[in-house]
């Protein structure tokens, strides 16, 4: 297996899918001449030309709409949002056009499109540029939402997203682009949408996470192991569809659960996870499911306040100990 960065794994996925299918094209701000704001599209303009790697003006609603239209007539656009914060301007096209077209056309017109870009907080980008939007899009019937945490999952899920016949919201992480990891060689590394993965097996408490909080949960599991607690780390990978079977199997085994996510708590991803658990396996629970989320405030710019507002390892460890009645 090759060791790649998350960035290069995404680049491979784009390149392979563009080689595989002439209908696939990439469009967004700075994706062509500048090789992408985060260099995810490096080299693609040279290889595929301006017809398939298209720079746009700073006009998210416009190029999102062009993408939806292209998808409706048979192309397979990948629309890069420089960050998901900017996609707020395009949300009408994503939610009202892309997500609903198949339903409102009576199944006649699908929208095979991928909207992708980094989400969540990085470092000191302040309140308007530090937001996790998974739960916003996961709320919408008609959208699939994935948020990979590793280079292998990034590549495999992006390839699956591009091949999917319906719109997929693909949320990356600015802080993840330099993350290195093993990626299976060969062109057919696909990770199915809707499948969670146990990133660390354990028996006493399940730490549910996705995207950047997978690293948080893994570190927390290490600290818990040093304290004699055997934690399992379940990476959702896909937020919608949610892999309920994997989630329930893990919690039915451990009887205790903590959900760790970047976003705010209210109506967040964890709220759906908790709902699923209590509804399906109430009798397996030995403690209420706890959640570790961003504090219920706009993300502070101040470095110390930002750190305090984020879901982190100490908060995760404390929550795990609480559901184990160790506090």
């Amino acid at each position: 297996m090759a060791v790649l960065t998350y960035r290069d794994a995404l680049n491979q996925a784009l390149r392979e899918e563009m080689q595989r299918d002439d209908r696939v094209f990439l469009m967004g701000e700075e994706v062509a001449e500048y090789n992408g704001a985060y260099k995810v599209s490096r080299g693609l303009l040279d290889e595929f030309g301006a017809r398939r790697v298209v720079d746009t003006p700073i006009a998210e609603l416009g190029f999102a709409g062009i993408g939806v239209g292209a998808a409706m007539v048979g192309l397979r656009p990948v629309i890069e949002m420089m960050t998901w914060n900017f996609a707020l301007l395009a949300i009408d096209q994503i939610v009202n056009s892309a997500a609903k077209m198949r339903y409102m056309s009576g199944g006649q017109v699908g929208v095979p499109i991928v909207f992708r870009g980094p989400g969540g907080a990085a470092l000191q980008l302040a309140a308007q540029h530090s937001q996790a939007f998974e739960s916003w899009y996961a709320h919408i019937p008609g959208l699939k939402v994935v948020a990979p945490a590793t280079p292998a999952d990034a590549k495999g899920l992006l390839k699956s997203a591009i091949r999917d016949d319906d719109p997929v919201v693909f949320i990356e992480g600015e802080m993840l682009y330099n993350l290195k990891g093993e990626v299976p060689d060969g062109g057919e590394h696909l990770v199915p949408i809707g499948r969670a993965e146990v990133k660390r097996a354990g028996g006493e408490v399940t730490l549910v996470c996705h995207s950047k909080t997978v690293a948080v949960a893994l570190k927390a599991a290490e600290e818990l192991a040093a304290q004699g607690v055997d934690a399992e780390v379940l990476d959702l990978r896909s937020i919608r569809p949610l892999d309920e079977a994997a989630l329930l199997a893990s919690v039915a085994k451990t009887h205790r659960c903590v959900v760790v996510e970047e976003g705010w708590a209210f109506a967040g991803v964890g709220a759906q996870v908790v709902d699923t658990i209590q509804r399906e396996i109430f009798d397996e629970l030995d403690a209420p499911v706890l959640r570790v989320t961003q504090a219920d405030v706009p993300m502070p710019y101040n470095k110390h306040l930002e750190k305090a507002a984020k879901a982190d390892v100490p908060k995760t460890v404390a929550a795990a100990r609480k559901v184990l009645y160790l506090e």
Partner: peptide, 16 residues
């Protein structure tokens, strides 16, 4: 069991 004879508080798993 509270002294007043109210309900027993137990986790769902403990009950099962």
């Amino acid at each position: 069991t509270p002294a007043d004879g109210g309900r027993v508080k137990a986790s769902p798993l403990a009950r099962r």
